[in-house]
Amino acid sequence: MQKIIYTQDNLQLLNRSFLFGDSVWVSFFIRNGQVIMAEESYFFLMASMRKMRLNIPLTYTLEFFQELLQNEVLSKGVQNGIVQLMAYRKQDEKPLAKSETAFFFEVDETEDVLRIQGNVELDLIKEINVNANLLSNIRVHSPENIYAQIYAKENDLDDVILLNPNKKIARSIFGNLLFLQDNVIKIPKQTEGAYISPLMENFVTFVHKNKLAEIEEAEIIAFESQKAEEILRISDEKGVHSVSKIRNKTFENTRFSEMVQKWAENFI
């Protein structure tokens, strides 16, 4: 199937996203021919746009995006996938704060977004770190991500662990890391530079409500990644993957697999 790309208002090459990275990314999720977590994704889009001080048109309602995805994605036969939507500030003559906003999206068809889609191998990167401020929690232009992706490719890795300036684990390139030890799942705090993730928050809420494990938001030093029994990566961009190896240590994925399976089976 041909990749679906939607552009609002005839995307111009000279726009502020292309020139300055002046944009935000948010994912919408398609499962079994339906948009799931639509409200969570929509409110995250609105929050991300506000943090970047993008003007939010009155037409950008939840119903607007639901109808758009129905007409431009679901009606074309997409059953499972991740919609990567980017909202950006136009390049116009208005003062920056009053510039108009537009968006485009592309669809990556995947397997069930609520299931583990494979294993990934990680390592720690020390040459760079990521900030832990207001914009660190949303998906914006990140030179650190670009550098880290090249580093991972050159070292035959799928992803890397990124630290903040205090040498605490923030996130990976593509998403958040969950560390399971005994009956506790540790997750880096957002104040440490972790992404806000509707997908992860939905999973964590399910685990907590069903008492499958205790959830602890924590400051996590790099060494603790080696102490974990299992590690899960949840990415709004890539989906859910288990971490199979970090350096010389391998990890199981039995318990996280069971939790994710129950999450998928009970998802409404």
Rank of each mutant, 00 (worst) to 15 (best):
F203H: 01
N210F: 09
I187Q: 07
K227W: 03
E217C: 01
I215A: 09
E217H: 14
E216R: 12
S242R: 03
R247S: 15
Q190R: 14
E224R: 09
E229M: 04
E192H: 07
K211S: 12
S235E: 06
I215L: 13
I215V: 13
F203L: 15
K189F: 05
T205I: 00
G239H: 08
Q226F: 15
E230W: 05
H241V: 06
K209H: 13
I221F: 11
E201Y: 04
A213K: 04
I187R: 07
E214Y: 12
E216T: 06
E237D: 10
I215M: 09
I221M: 04
N210P: 07
V240N: 01
N202C: 10
E214P: 00
I187Y: 10
I215C: 06
S244N: 13
P188I: 11
V243R: 05
D236A: 03
D236G: 13
F206C: 06
K238F: 01
A194Q: 07
I196P: 00
Q226S: 11
R233I: 14
S197I: 08
A194P: 10
T191A: 13
L199F: 10
S235V: 08
I196Y: 10
K245M: 11
I221T: 12
A194D: 09
H208A: 15
E201T: 10
V243S: 02
A222N: 04
A222D: 13
E224T: 01
S235C: 05
K189Q: 14
V240K: 02
I187S: 12
I215D: 04
S242H: 11
S244V: 09
G239F: 10
I187F: 10
N202V: 01
K227C: 04
E201M: 12
I231A: 06
P198H: 08
Y195S: 02
